[in-house]
């Protein structure tokens, strides 16, 4: 029976390093049983927030709790929270298995968890090799294995897809979905929305240390300005029909036989075409749309602002 995850509560979190404010009055919640994407450009405060949640960085004000307590007050932190923070925290001359044995011993965990975690992340054959010779992808897997040692109910992963090959990313996606399905809390940071789009249920987006959006991915997709590409043998007729039925949409030619429609979903464009009896060859909404919304959100410097 896998452990149920505690929710994460970040309330009014502010962290200043000297004169630099890394995180400013940040509040959000992360629910168990879901994968939450923690998104923002590099340097937006994601890592600082994660480190506050893990008791490695002391907040200037506000709080970052696991369930109802800060990490340092948890009775058995490694069994409640697993964290993979960065790929650099290894002694290069120590083997992967010994790295995990050190952590398991310090935390008082069952030694068998070491080989189990290595197997979960697919590092069994490399377990006896020195970490100094590992690729970035292998280090990421080892960091993930360390996070899994205590079979924790909550996982905090900082850019876990960095350095993974496409196969690894696909594996990670399935793995994280399975963990959330077991009722665990999964928080995954990334600076690229498209990277986690197929993995996450919820998103928390920050920019310059401040919250710009928190909610479900589905809501964000709905909020996103629909940007549809449509191919048709009769683009002129279709363009006219679209402008007539949806004056707010902007319709532009996008190469020969194609239109770029801003402000309408593929379904809406398809509906207009269908009612007018116009032949349609392709109807798509690319991932670039959401990515563009993400970029607009994080570049606007307009916290909490509407789109």
């Amino acid at each position: 029976m896998p452990p149920t995850g505690e929710p994460l509560h970040v309330v009014g979190l502010t962290k200043r390093f000297g004169s630099v404010t890394a995180v400013k009055d940040l509040s959000f919640e992360v629910s168990p049983g879901r994968v939450t994407g923690f998104l923002g450009p590099n340097g937006s405060g994601k890592t600082t927030t994660l480190r506050c949640l893990l008791g490695l960085v002391t907040p200037t004000s506000g709080s970052a709790h696991i369930g109802s307590a800060p990490y340092r007050a948890l009775p058995d932190p490694t069994r409640m929270v697993g964290a993979a923070l960065e790929a650099s925290g290894f002694h290069p001359a120590r083997t992967a298995r010994n790295h995990l044995r050190v952590i398991a011993t310090a935390a008082g965990l069952d030694a068998r968890r070491v080989d189990a975690s290595l197997e979960t992340v697919g590092l069994t054959t490399a377990a006896g090799r020195k970490v100094g010779g590992f690729s970035l992808g292998m280090r990421q897997r080892l960091a993930l294995a360390a996070a899994l040692l205590g079979d924790p109910g909550a996982l905090l992963l900082d850019e876990p897809a960095n350095g993974l090959d496409p196969e690894g990313i696909a594996w990670l996606r399935t793995f994280l979905r399975a963990l959330a399905a077991e009722g665990r809390t999964v928080l995954v940071s990334s600076h690229v929305l498209s990277e986690v789009r197929q993995t996450v249920d919820d998103v928390v987006i920050i920019s310059r240390g401040e919250l710009v959006h928190a909610g479900t991915l589905a809501d964000l997709e709905k909020t996103a300005t629909s940007h549809t590409t449509v191919r048709s043998p009769s683009t002129e007729a279709l363009a006219a029909a679209l402008r007539e039925s949806a004056p707010h949409a902007s319709v532009d030619p996008a190469g020969e036989g194609a239109l770029s429609v801003l402000g309408l979903s593929p379904a809406e464009v398809g509906h207009v075409a269908f009612t007018r009896g116009i032949e349609v060859h392709e109807l798509s909404s690319s991932a670039g749309d959401l990515e563009r919304v993400f970029l607009e959100l994080t570049a606007s410097g307009n916290p909490g602002g509407a789109l």
């Binding site: 893990l54 932190p77 960065e86 050190v102 935390a107």
Partner: peptide, 16 residues
């Protein structure tokens, strides 16, 4: 060495 190799992170995670 814990600070040099940043193993201090996993050390303090295991023992806050």
């Amino acid at each position: 060495g814990e600070y040099r190799h940043m193993t201090i992170t996993s050390t303090f995670l295991a023992a806050p």
